[in-house]
Design a protein around this nucleic acid. Structure first.
Length: 510
RNA sequence: GGCGCUAUCGUCUAGGGGUUAGGACGUAAGAUUCUCAUUCUUAAAACAGGGGUUCGAUUCCCCUUAGCGCUACCA
């Protein structure tokens, strides 16, 4: 049976989308692109208590920044909408009722408090309370009531939920594309709530109904859902949708760089790397979180890094465009074990993308920063600077910070470097160099190099003795590219001005 | 506790019944440059443990251990 590939990313708008979520979205996107299918975005907002205003917009913006184009769903539309679960309330109720009628589900009138007490009591006895065939006969539900009593309870104001009637002692051999066969026994599973007393479905019901209705062919989601797989498969069976049930693939989790557990929101601000694609401020707590975007990561680098977390191409290539990833991506190369996130490698990816960018593009990014600082700088020279300097940095902001001396004369000289290179004989030497520089009009690398090298050689001065203090005078510190490059860019006038300042500021003798 | 998943350098991973177990990040050393970086070279660094199966297991099976996940009227 050839079915059109249709996959969905179905986040819950309970806050910002974190790394793991973005990766799930990415894998779904790549899978869809690889097989020429559809990538849908569905918002699973069935828990009104955890709803965070702005989260949905954040998710959409993040996907956009990452370049993951949604084909169908919230914000895009499509023929299977609405794609926001809160707008599909009536649909779920109808399906929940259908399950009750077919005997696959039942009404449960137990209160949360009663159940909590039961769980606690069992725990104290060292037992595990499971709401299933073993216990449902003693509990307050429609299975133990006459039809009339059920009707009466339903008609009154009594709160109720609808639970799935988990079959007894069924061995389930389920298939996961990534993990192969996974085995469960239904006796250890519980009668999960499908329909809540507030009239909303739980994830389990809404998920199955929507995936069915939206003709989803493959469910690619995080490993945290693997324990729910038997319930979901049983739900498909109960509805009689087995033939069109999607295939399942459970992705390995992304773990903290250090310590135990999966990556969480908290790690971001604490460990010095973002966990969110973009900056996010919690509207309730006011807490602000870093984002990859604002921290200076290129979306391509961010995506590339994420793609290699749990997937590999089977070759030694590491740098891929989104396009290439889509061509190469298959679920066969996704691995099973959780991956520790490595912030250093994330920076390295950004470095790779930075140096691969044309100088003109970097220049325009740096120009934005210059404008912010109110500096107007020659664009051709700026491009040259970027070409000269980009190899050294991971981020544009760092490059800019280190290139400031090109744009503005150093306000002061690095004390350590000045002390190291500005020796007793230096002022005289620099004065001599200044006089030579003053006579030169062509400040091209080739010309200044020719003249100054000749002078150094002739006087047997040694390059270090001249170039190091010269650098301190011009750059302000012992860093930066080749000096002839530097003065070619800043030009004669500025070179002489900086020399004058150094000669008048730095000690004339020790 | 119960259930499930997982297990190759510090980290991400390739590989796979016989290999010098490969790459990348990071780390260290050396080389180079007028400085700082870059770059280049090199190095250290792994098959969790125990049983099987086999002529031969890191690879296949079992157990143990460890890690992770789930165990809500959250997703």
């Amino acid at each position: 049976m050839e079915r059109k590939v249709r996959v969905r990313f179905a986040p819950s708008p309970t806050g910002a989308l974190h790394l793991g979520g973005v990766r799930t979205a990415l894998f779904n996107y790549l899978f869809a692109r690889h097989y020429g299918g559809d990538f849908l975005l569905r918002i699973e907002d069935t828990d009104q208590t955890r709803y965070v205003p702005g989260a949905e917009e954040y998710i959409i913006e993040s996907l956009k920044w990452c370049g993951l184009q949604v084909d169908e769903g919230v914000g895009v539309g499509g023929e299977y909408g609405p794609y926001r679960q809160s707008e599909r309330k009536e649909i779920y109720k109808q399906y929940a009722l259908q399950l009750v009628e077919s005997g696959h589900a039942y009404y449960s009138f137990d209160t949360a408090e009663e159940l909590d007490a039961l769980r606690k009591a069992c725990e104290e006895r060292g037992e595990t309370f499971i709401y299933n065939a073993a216990s449902r006969g003693q509990l307050n539900n429609s299975l133990n009531m006459t039809p009339a009593a059920v009707k009466e309870a339903l008609d009154s104001d009594t709160h109720y939920v609808i639970r799935f009637k988990m079959p007894e002692n069924q061995d389930l051999h389920l298939h996961d594309i990534i993990r192969g066969e996974v085995h469960f026994n239904s006796s250890l599973l519980d009668d999960k709530v499908l329909y809540k007393s507030d009239g909303m479905p739980t994830y389990h019901l809404a998920n199955i109904v929507d995936d069915h209705l939206m003709k989803i062919s493959h469910v690619i989601r995080g490993e945290e859902w693997l324990p729910s797989l038997p319930l979901h498969v049983l739900l498909y069976k109960a509805f009689g949708w087995e033939d069109t049930m999607p295939a399942f693939a459970h992705l390995p989790l992304i773990l903290k760089p250090v310590g135990n557990g999966k990556l969480s929101k908290r790690d971001g601000n604490k460990m010095g790397f973002p966990v969110f694609p973009m900056e996010f401020t919690d509207p309730v707590s006011g807490e602000k979180w870093h984002g990859y975007k604002e921290d200076g990561y290129f979306p391509e680098a961010f995506i590339n890094m994420l793609a290699l977390l749990g997937w590999n191409p089977g070759t030694e290539q590491e740098i891929f465009s989104l396009q290439e990833l889509a061509e190469l991506f298959t679920l066969e190369h996704v691995n099973k074990s959780g991956a520790r996130f490595n912030p250093d490698k994330a920076k390295w990816f950004n470095h790779k993308y930075l140096i691969a960018k044309p100088d003109s593009e970097i220049a325009s990014l740096v120009d934005d920063l210059l404008k912010k600082d109110g500096i107007d700088f020659d664009r051709t020279k700026l491009e040259k600077i970027c070409g000269l300097m980009k190899e050294r940095y991971n981020f544009i902001a760092d490059l800019y910070a280190d290139c400031r001396f090109f744009f503005v004369a150093p306000e002061e000289f690095n004390e350590k470097d000045a002390k190291k290179y500005w020796k007793e004989e230096t002022p005289a030497l620099m004065q001599e160099l200044y006089d030579i520089l003053k006579e030169i009009d062509d400040y091209s690398f080739a010309n200044t190099e020719k003249i100054i090298s000749a002078w150094i050689t002739e006087k047997e001065l040694g390059f270090g003795k001249v170039m190091n203090p010269f650098r301190v005078a011009i750059v302000g510190a012992a860093k930066g590219p080749h000096m002839f490059d530097v003065i070619e860019i800043i030009g004669k006038e500025e070179t002489l001005r900086r020399m004058e300042k150094a000669l008048s500021t730095l000690p004339s003798s020790h």
